[in-house]
Design a protein around this nucleic acid. Structure first.
Lengths: 209, 209
DNA sequence: AATCTTTTTGAACGCTCATTCAAGTAAAAT
DNA sequence: ATTTTACTTGAATGAGCGTTCAAAAAGATT
């Protein structure tokens, strides 16, 4: 059978029946499931329940459980990137934003929802030695956030804020390490006062007296 | 049938045919499997292969996969406790031992074997929100190591070493957080020079200039 | 209204999971 | 040597896993 040019165009290129679900909403729910359960324990059954999608639809839209996870990770990263950007888009000193950033992290750690974990660091811990592709994506995303931090620290130094004159990237690394550590530490001591004190120490460790 | 007193004693209390495997060796192998694979991914099949025990023997000796894991965790903790104790049983200043402790951690992070991960922190990250009993055991073990660290820091302060005059437990918390952070950080940057620099910064952050 | 195309649906697949248990084996006691 | 007891063995179990696919439903086109 021969298709007309119009029908070829319309059916192949232009008007395709679009999926009925809201991709962003699906990813948000999948993301939460992965944050609550971890990668291995977030079964397809749980994911279908959380997203409202049937297995076939998930496989059609995301290819595999891993594909869904990688997109959920991207969704998470996007949100964190935006939150970070917003936090530092201000007239306040960088150090003030840095302090707020720590406060936010402490607050996250003290939540009783899935928000208490960082999808990136938790998944990286879980996936180590199992799936190098996933590990690379997670590590890359974390490095991007670290680099954004380094930029802010460099800016603070240039603007003469009370920050150590060390290499900005080196300070960012140490700060990042502290944040990672706080997230694990919060599992052993889910105590706001303790985490806040550690947060203050962390900020102090990159500033001048 | 009536048993003689001797036979009752001997069969019930004294001579029981003992299991043929070396429990410590089995735990060592199980521990390595859990370190390599994580808890969820360390299947009974892998564990039987690693330990040389058949499923029935594992269930007889440890009750369940969880039971085996908890004993493997205890085995790990025991080893770390001993290594820690040995590191600080010396005439050198505490700060020197603390520096060695960091060096050891960096070296562990840079290994390409299962030794690159800390079974306690990795499992705690994985198990969060899944099994409170396991989470408590892991957290308790980590707290014990933290307390041992606090004692050493207190000792250093009393002996007039160049350490901050802050509360010793508070310094130990920060130091511990740094170690936890380094372990996650190593997954994103498996780079010895970077980890060593961060280790130096960590030590500096609890010492006086 | 009829046809074509795409998405949705969910039962079914093969596989692996943790766990069990009856049969086999060997040590200890008689 | 026989009996008793305990451990070892590994096939079998049912449940759950990630994934597939043919049938049903529905939007787009004619």
């Amino acid at each position: 059978m021969i298709l007309s040019y119009a029908s070829l165009l319309s059916s192949v290129l232009f008007v395709m029946r679009s999926a009925e679900f809201d991709r962003s909403e699906v990813l948000q729910n999948a993301m939460q499931t992965f944050m609550e359960q971890g990668y291995a324990k977030a079964s397809m059954q749980k994911l279908t329940k959380a997203t409202g999608l049937h297995p076939g639809s998930i496989y059609c839209a995301f290819g595999s459980k891993k594909g869904l996870f990688l997109e959920a990770v991207n969704h998470y990263h996007e949100q964190k990137r935006m939150a970070f950007s917003q936090l530092f888009t201000t007239d306040k000193p960088v150090l003030a934003s840095l302090s707020l950033f720590i406060d936010n992290t402490v607050q996250e750690c003290m939540q009783n929802t899935c928000a208490k974990v960082c999808l990136l660091t938790r998944s990286l811990n879980e996936i180590e030695g199992q799936d190098p592709e996933i590990a690379n994506v997670l590590a890359d995303n974390l490095k991007q956030l670290e680099n954004a931090l380094a930029k802010q620290i460099e800016k603070a130094q240039q603007q003469g804020e009370a920050i150590l004159p060390d290499n900005a990237l080196s300070l960012a690394r140490f700060f990042t390490m502290g944040i990672y550590g706080m997230r694990t530490y919060a599992f052993t001591h889910p105590n706001k006062a303790i985490l806040e004190e550690m947060g203050k120490q962390l900020l102090r460790s990159i500033t001048t007296d």
